[in-house]
């Protein structure tokens, strides 16, 4: 492995950018792929590149067969994170379930009575104002953001930061009516229709969830669905 490729892999792994190192296991030739940029001496055909994109989506290291021999595909993906705004009842099961699913979870709520270690043991809590807290966390394309407070004072600033970020999922708790009112307020802040369409509201898959744990399941299921969805370009090609 050439040192510059190693340094690139390390930088990508730290920065939160997705990257792939492809290694031909027969001859050791390698290519490093990050976004549309590639570096290295291993040539990959369209079929190999498609298989690599799939590996990135599935977040899975794998070996693919190519005409030149087996190629090991190593995916450098930053850790999945979930930021929950509102240390409310639903946040308790959601934080636990998301942790089980592999997410690094942060719960934000400036109301210290809600965001207490007693209610959220073993979890990262922030009692900063949601927009400040979110900005500090620098959401990236491996981050899901869910607002649960129902309170425009808390949810709206958080959503404004979320919509300006690369977060792969943005969801907001609230009925259709609440969501429509929310979109109106955010539109007044200058967000356009396509930006507002990024918000999943009412949040979660429609599975008839009633209890906080069930609602958490609906939310995590939708987050998973969005995370694992095939990239649009692949779907069109298929």
């Amino acid at each position: 492995m050439k040192l510059p490729l190693l340094e690139k892999a390390l930088a990508a792994s730290r920065s939160g950018r997705a990257a792939v190192l492809a290694t031909n296991l027969k001859n050791g030739l390698q290519t490093f792929i990050e976004a549309t940029e590639t570096a290295g001496d291993l040539t990959l055909d369209a079929a190999a590149l498609a298989a690599i994109r799939k590996a990135v989506t599935e977040d899975r290291n794998t070996t693919i067969e190519t005409p030149d021999g087996p190629v090991f595909v190593e995916v450098f993906n930053p850790r999945l994170r979930m930021v929950i705004v509102g240390a409310v009842h639903i946040a308790q099961p959601l934080a636990r379930m998301a942790t089980l699913a592999g997410y690094g979870v942060t719960v934000i709520d400036p109301r210290t009575a809600f965001a207490s270690d007693e209610r959220f043991p073993d979890l990262t809590l922030s009692t900063d104002w949601p927009d400040e807290a979110l900005e500090k966390l620098k959401p990236n394309r491996r981050t899901a953001i869910v607002t649960l407070t129902h309170d425009p004072k808390l949810d709206d600033p958080a959503l404004a930061v979320a919509l300006r970020s690369d977060a792969f999922y943005v969801g907001a708790l609230g009925s259709k009516k609440t969501h429509a009112a929310r979109c109106k307020r955010l539109a007044a802040r200058g967000f356009g229709e396509s930006e507002l369409a990024r918000i999943h509201g009412p949040v979660g898959l429609d599975i008839g969830a009633v209890s906080p744990a069930e609602i958490a399941i609906a939310i995590l299921a939708q987050v998973t669905q969005v995370l694992r969805a095939e990239p649009q370009s692949d779907r069109e090609a298929a």
Binding site: E7, L10, S13, R14, T23, N61, T63, E74, F76, P78
Partner: peptide, 29 residues
């Protein structure tokens, strides 16, 4: 990936010290 970051960094550091370095990766199980 946290573990691997530390390992890759160590490989870079060793190279910077002029040492010969090899990397081993589990490619299938």
């Amino acid at each position: 990936m946290g573990d691997n970051e530390e390992i890759l960094q160590r490989a870079v550091d060793w190279r910077a010290q002029g040492k010969g370095v090899a990397l081993a990766t589990v490619v299938s199980t």
